[in-house]
Structures are given as structure tokens and as C-alpha cells.
Write a protein that binds this DNA or RNA. Structure first.
Length: 563
RNA sequence: UGCCUGGUAGUGUAACGGUAGCACGACUGACUCUGAAUCAGUUAGUCCAAGUUCAAAUCUUGGCCGGGCAACCA
């Protein structure tokens, strides 16, 4: 149990207080209630980590419950994807996988009970009429003309609604609360609507389906949930949550609201994410630029980094936007510790070592992960013709440029010191090849005479290299707030045209030919990369998960600004 | 305009009437066979105004500003 680990946020505080006071007999029971109408995103991860994390920390249980009361929008595909994502995040709900639709029978009985108590009635108003009767935020609504129907008539009508005697939308069951309430949710809310659609679980058994408000608290009650944690937009619904439970006189959990996650350069709106997918702005829900769990997974994020992030950002009730850099920091911190290093040249420039014998090669030792000795080492082949990164060479190099240029000596990582002697250009003046010499005495990367070089470059042996496609990703949106657009524009106008750059002809060290989809590496001096699901042994495809911090790029950027 | 909520460095958060702290970012510097990582340091904050108190980010009152709510969605 909790020893000295003090509560870190107001929700945990509340749970700890309840344990101390014995409010729920020391029990902690939470739930994560997704609607299976879309894919989970990083915002859901925050909720999952909160709900499930609290149960874990306080020795309680957590349920996965699908809030599937709207067959028009929900699909089995989403149920499967949601389960996969939560499992990947590292949570196990054991046998506690529930569906609101499992409670339809009980919910119906409870609705009948409310009718019998005179607390619910069948209403014939259509959508437009109901809207007119609802009033406005400043004016009270007017009661439905059907509000005073007798219990018998209501019972009869509701039974016939269930039996399918009336067309969709022609009648509703409504709670009799208060048409004058300043809280719109309490103005005789709809409990049931007639909606004929095949449900992914109940099929065509039901033509009436309960609304969220009449389902959620009741489901929590059935599952003996102690703390029903949800996002702020349900705060106004809490009075109704409480009203139903009290009217029914059943077990009454506590609803607690927290602020949803916002992240810069992306968005969490399920509706808009769906639009991006449907409009083919991205390749799918798992496009590596998407904030979805499956997108992050394909991008190369680790579940551990996502959980660490969710822990770091805390939980409050005020709306805020977390800097994407915080997520990236959690990612790099994790990957730095576990990703094996490899040498990979993304934009190859050919280098010929003139004093290295033709047709020969040798194996050099390379450390797999300097942060983890147990990762061991590997060998990489070296030969006369190599590739280095194009921007590791400059003809007119500034003083601070520590890399290669004519007459300068640098180290090839784990290999030799080389000095550039000549630049070869094509007819247009483009650099197409460098001629260099190497110092055989520096084998392994150290000079016996103790001389130092300022730069160390990554490289691959041309003859041994594996050719690959590499996809470079950047923010999906230009603006930190995608919805910050001019009049008449939408978030679409904010899409970053350069969010995906595909590089072909990249040259990787040969050990990478063994990599399989999902494998993560650090390409030294470049960033963290993972093998994409599109990858095949013939044409390997790597995604750049995130670049390494780049002090040199920063210096250049500052110089450009200064000019 | 009514109701519900909330305002602490640039950003995200902590401080439970008693020294405003942490993380990310930014900026220095050290170290370096990754211009990475690591280490050290700098920067910068209680929305405003009154009040209560020996003492207020915290309590009171009044402003100001932000978010949510008028689906037979969740």
C-alpha cells in the first residue's frame, strides 16, 4: 500500500483521503470508459494512466468498459484497436472487460422503475420541438405537453417503444427533472431514444438505446466503481449523474473531473483526427505523425516513455497546453538508455581513401550502447570507399565547423582519422566525391601520438552498406495551436507541408539488414529511428522517431536569424 | 447575457496560513571517439485591488481574464 509516497495531485489526494476515512471501506475501483468510435490518442493515455495508475498505486482494481450506447457510430474495429493500444501501454484489466451494452437489460428495468416513480415520461416531441422547449442559457425552458402522462400510459408507451412500434426519432423517454434549471443538462434530459441500427454486440435486439447520462453512472454503480474519473466537460453533467443514482437509490460512486491534455503542434479532437484520416491528409490512424497511440507506436515511441510523460505532466483542473518538447524529452530519455547505436548515412557523399588498399576490407569494433554495457558490441566493415553525410563536409567552412573540409583531419567513428585532400565536382559544380587519406596508426579511433581532432563523423562502407528508405517526420501543424487560423480558414490551412520527407538511397551499416518492424535504434549523430511496418528485407524502411538535440543546427539557425 | 469551472517563471506543475520549489525550454560553461548523453550554472513567476492576520499563492470581498454547457453524441 501507500507508505510514504505522498499524493501528487488532487485526484490521488482525494483517493488517499477516502482510504483514510474508510469511505469506500478502503476499496479503490476505477474504470476507463472509451467509446469505440475512434482510436485512442495521447490524451486518452493520460486518462488511462490516471485511472489505471491510481488503482495500481492504491492496491485497487481497474476495469475497461466500452461506452457503447450509440450503435450508429461504434464499431468492433475500434474495440479491437483500443484493447491493443491499452495492452501495449502496459496495462492488464484481467477479466474485467465490460460493455455498457451488457447492462441494457438492467438499464431498461431501471428506466421502468423511474417511470413507476413518476420520474420519467414518454415524450412525443421531435428534435426541433424539443430544442424550442429547452429554452436558452438565460431563459428557462417550457415543459413538454406530454410531461403529465399517467404512469400507466408511460409504461405502455415505453414498452411499445422497445417493441419497435414507433419509427426512429418519434418518441423519447425523458427524466422529469427541472425545465427551469440553469444547468441545461437538467432540463428533462432524454434517457432513451428510438434508434434502429445494428449494434456491434447486441445486434438488432434493441431499437431503443440509452443516452450517455443514463448509462454512465449506472454502469459505474453496477461495477461498484469508487472514483469515476473523467474530463472537465462532464462537470456540468455531475448533477445529473448524481440525480439518476439518487432517484434509483443505488450504489453511488464519486465522479471527479480533471483537465484533458492538450499538446502543441497537434490536436486531440477525435472528430478532426477522423477528418484527417478520411481526407487522406495522413496515411491512416497509425500515420506516425498522428497523436494516436498506434501512430506514436509506429513512430517508434516506447510505452514507457508515454507513461513517464503522463506522470510528469501532472493532473489539475485548469486547461493548459503542454509543450510537445516535454513528450519528446520523455522519449529521448528512455531511448537514450535502451536504443542500440548504429551508423547510418542519410544523405550520402562518397569518400575514397586513396592510401587504403583497393579490394580490401576489415572489421572494426563498435559499442552498441555506451549507456548500457550489457548491450555489448558489434563489428562494422571498413574499406576504401565510404559514404559520409553530405552536410559533414563544407568547402568554405567557418571556424566553428568541426567537420570535414579540404586539408582538415577528422575521426571516422570507431575507425580512423582521415584528412581530406581533394574535392571532386560535376559539371554543375556540385560536390560528388571526396578524396581523402587515412592514418593507419589511428585504427580504432585514437592517435598514438595523442593528437586530437575536433570532429567525429559517422560513415558506412559503400560496398557493404544496406540501402534503405528513411522517413523524416516533423510536426503535423505549422502553428503550436492548429486551430489558431485566420477568419475563414480551418486547421487544414495549418498543416505542415513538410511534416513528411522521404529519403531514398540512404546507406546503413550492414547489421541493420537484420532489423524487423518495430526495432528501435539510435543512428549516431542523427536521431532515433525505428523499422516501419512497410519495411521489407528488399527495401528496408525506417521512421525517424525524433532527431537528436543538435547544437550545431542551433548555431546555424541563430546565425541565419542574425543576418 | 445565465450556470459550472479555473488563473503560480516562456510552458507544465508543487507549496494544505509560515523560506515560492521541481521539470521542460532558453542561455552560459565543463567534459566528450555521437556538436548526443552527462555535469555545473544563469534566466524568469503567485491576474488586479481592497480586507482579515504577527504572517496570504493559500482565507474574505469586488473586479479582470480564460475554459465548458442550449445532440434523440460521448
Amino acid at each position: 500500500m501507500m507508505e510514504e509516497s505522498t499524493p501528487t495531485d488532487f485526484v490521488r489526494q482525494m483517493v488517499a483521503d477516502d482510504i483514510d476515512s474508510g469511505k469506500w471501506d478502503g476499496r479503490v475501483q476505477t474504470r476507463f470508459p472509451p467509446e469505440p468510435n475512434g482510436y485512442l490518442h495521447i490524451g486518452h493515455a493520460k486518462s488511462i494512466c490516471l485511472n489505471f495508475g491510481i488503482a495500481e498505486e492504491f492496491g485497487g482494481k481497474y476495469n475497461l468498459r466500452f461506452d457503447d450506447t450509440n450503435p450508429a457510430k461504434e464499431e468492433q474495429e475500434y474495440v479491437d484497436a483500443i484493447k491493443e493500444d491499452i495492452r501495449w501501454l502496459g496495462f492488464d484489466w484481467e477479466d474485467r472487460e465490460f460493455y455498457a451494452s451488457d447492462y441494457f437489460e438492467q438499464l431498461y428495468d431501471w428506466a421502468v422503475l423511474l417511470i413507476n416513480d413518476g420520474k420519467a415520461f414518454v415524450c412525443d416531441l421531435n428534435g426541433d420541438e424539443m430544442r424550442e422547449h429547452r429554452g436558452t442559457v438565460t431563459e428557462a425552458g417550457t415543459e413538454s405537453p406530454h410531461r403529465s402522462r399517467s404512469v400507466e400510459e408511460n409504461l405502455d408507451l415505453f414498452a411499445r417503444m422497445k417493441a419497435g412500434e414507433f419509427p426512429d426519432g418519434s418518441k423519447t423517454l425523458r427524466a422529469k427533472v427541472d425545465m427551469a434549471s440553469p444547468n441545461m443538462n437538467l432540463r428533462d434530459p432524454v434517457m432513451y431514444r428510438i434508434l434502429t441500427a445494428t449494434h456491434h454486440r447486441t445486434g438488432d435486439t434493441w431499437c431503443i438505446h440509452p443516452m450517455y447520462d443514463f448509462t454512465h453512472g449506472e454502469s459505474d454503480s453496477i461495477e461498484r466503481v469508487t472514483h469515476s474519473i473523467c474530463t472537465m466537460e462532464f462537470e456540468d453533467h455531475r448533477p445529473l449523474y448524481d440525480w439518476y443514482l439518487d432517484a434509483l437509490g443505488i450504489y453511488h460512486p464519486q465522479q471527479i473531473e480533471f483537465a484533458r491534455l492538450n499538446l502543441t503542434y497537434t490536436m486531440m479532437s477525435k472528430r478532426k483526427l477522423l477528418e484527417l484520416v478520411e481526407e487522406k491528409q495522413v496515411s491512416g490512424w497509425d500515420d506516425p505523425r498522428m497523436p494516436t497511440i498506434c501512430g506514436l507506436r509506429r513512430r517508434g515511441y516506447t510505452p514507457e516513455s508515454i507513461r513517464a510523460f503522463c506522470h510528469e505532466i501532472g493532473v489539475t483542473k485548469f486547461n493548459s497546453t503542454t509543450d510537445m518538447a516535454v513528450l519528446e524529452n520523455a522519449l529521448r530519455a528512455d531511448l537514450n538508455k535502451r536504443a542500440e547505436r548504429r551508423l547510418a548515412v542519410l544523405n550520402p557523399l562518397k569518400v575514397v581513401i586513396e592510401n587504403y588498399p583497393e579490394g580490401e576490407s576489415e572489421e572494426l569494433d563498435a559499442i552498441n550502447n555506451p549507456e548500457d554495457a550489457s548491450a555489448g558490441s558489434r563489428t562494422i566493415p571498413f574499406s576504401r570507399e565510404l559514404y559520409i553525410e553530405r552536410d559533414d563536409f563544407m568547402e568554405d567552412a567557418p571556424r566553428k565547423f568541426f567537420r570535414l573540409s579540404v586539408g582538415k583531419e577528422v575521426r571516422l567513428r570507431y575507425a580512423y582519422f582521415i584528412t581530406c585532400t581533394e574535392v571532386i565536382k560535376d559539371d554543375d559544380g556540385n560536390v560528388i566525391e571526396l578524396r581523402c587519406t587515412y592514418d593507419p596508426a589511428t585504427r580504432g579511433g585514437d592517435a598514438p601520438d595523442g593528437r586530437k581532432v575536433k570532429g567525429t563523423l559517422h560513415w558506412v562502407s559503400a560496398a557493404h552498406a544496406v540501402e534503405a528508405e528513411v522517413r523524416l517526420y516533423d510536426h503535423l501543424f505549422e502553428n503550436p495551436d492548429p486551430n489558431d487560423v485566420q477568419e475563414g480558414q480551418t486547421y487544414r490551412d495549418n498543416l505542415n507541408a513538410n511534416s513528411l520527407k522521404t529519403l531514398t538511397g540512404c546507406q546503413l551499416e550492414p547489421s541493420l539488414s537484420q532489423a524487423t518492424p518495430g526495432d528501435r535504434f539510435q543512428f549516431e549523430r542523427r536521431g532515433y529511428f525505428c523499422v516501419d511496418t512497410d519495411s521489407t528485407p528488399q527495401t528496408p524502411v525506417f521512421n525517424r522517431t525524433t532527431p537528436l538535440r543538435d547544437a550545431w543546427a542551433k548555431i546555424q539557425k541563430q546565425k541565419q536569424k542574425g543576418k
